[in-house]
Amino acid sequence: MNLASLLSKDRINLSLDAGKKDEVIKDLVYAIKKGAEAELIVSTLLKREELGSTGIGKGIAIPHCRSLAVEKLEIAVGRTKKPVNFNAIDKKPVSLLFLIIAPPQDPGNQYLITLGKVVQIAKEITKKNLIQKPETPEDFITMINDIEKGLAKRK
């Protein structure tokens, strides 16, 4: 599974204005869906956040859920202009978010595989201090591609 191939330039926003957790989530969801479907996804994601923050620490969060509203695995990426309080595991605010929404029917278990991969890549981003490095969505995809190549070489 190659994460870079699942990313799309028009779903990467590196200058999100939103300043609150629920606003950031909403902005990212609306990059994928609109209207009632988007509201369903937002409700499910916020319920997921109530179970425990998806802020994995060091400035990165990975909000995720399955939803009837999507036909295939969808990913949106956002970087906030100012760090946002996400009640993350290390209590530090979040700047970079990977939003992952999967359909309920997922025979290849692509959802959990992708989630695991994103966590792995997020750890590389923090380790190498790359959150603020990409200037454009294209740069971001290139960065993810490079990280994936690096991880593959280590195997």
């Binding site: 499910t44 859920c65 399955r66 939803s67 009837l68 309920p104």
Partner: peptide, 10 residues
């Protein structure tokens, strides 16, 4: 109904 279904998946 849709939210119930999504929460059950969660």
């Amino acid at each position: 109904l849709k939210l119930l279904f999504d929460l059950d998946n969660l």
